[in-house]
Computed example of a mutant assay.
Amino acid sequence: MKIGLFFGSFNPVHIGHLIIANTMATTTDLEQVWFVVSPQNPFKKNKSLLHEFDRIDLVERAIADNARLKATDIEFSMPRPSYTIDTLARLQEKYPQHQFKLIIGGDNLAQFPNWKNHEKILEFYGLYVYPRPNSAPSPLEHHPNVKFIEAPLLDISATFIRESIKKNRSIRYLVPEVVEEIIERKRFYI
């Protein structure tokens, strides 16, 4: 099976993430998209990061009705910060029957050469790139293992959602209803 891997903090998961994942699962040759919930992004600071078990719970509830979307906690048991190449190797070892592709936003493509072992990721896995606002040009745009996917141009940020919660503003329609209910009930991000 060909599986797209959508890495992120998902802090919290929002409709932008879900739209991109569903677009990848329904308009490309990917048979499934797995949300790889990262305990800690090596490029981001750790403040205001909800516990990884809460974040994966929110993702699982958000995608529960879509058989083509899955969540994985593969990085929870790995050294931190976890690097994409190490996670890809672990997944390939655990699921040798699958072919994995990495899903990234166009804004990350310009930074991709800074990633650990980015050449190996390109060579052995390849990238499915979705559009993002203000994406800088990248020398990798014409690489044979970089595939651009037509998808809605979305600029919804988890930071905006967390700030809205802190200011007691509505997050309705920014996150799935079930995610909004859990955030309110458990008083996350306050």
Rank of each mutant, 00 (worst) to 15 (best):
P96W: 02
P12R: 09
E181S: 12
V33F: 08
A62Q: 06
V33W: 05
I19C: 13
R68V: 08
P79T: 07
L49F: 06
N11P: 06
P137M: 00
L88V: 04
Q40Y: 02
Y173E: 05
I85A: 12
P39L: 03
I121G: 03
K47S: 15
M1V: 14
G16E: 06
E184H: 14
I15N: 15
S170E: 02
M1A: 14
M1W: 11
I103E: 00
N145G: 10
I121S: 05
L5S: 09
V33P: 01
G106Q: 07
A62P: 04
P144Q: 04
Y95V: 04
S48G: 09
E123W: 02
K116S: 02
G105V: 03
R61K: 15
N66M: 03
P152M: 13
S38T: 15
V59M: 07
A158L: 02
H118A: 04
Y125T: 01
D65T: 06
T27M: 08
S77E: 13
K94I: 04
K120V: 13
M1E: 13
P79Q: 08
L154Y: 01
P139C: 00
F124Y: 12
E31K: 14
I19Q: 14
Q97I: 02
F148K: 10
V36I: 15
F53D: 15
D86A: 09
P139H: 00
I74E: 06
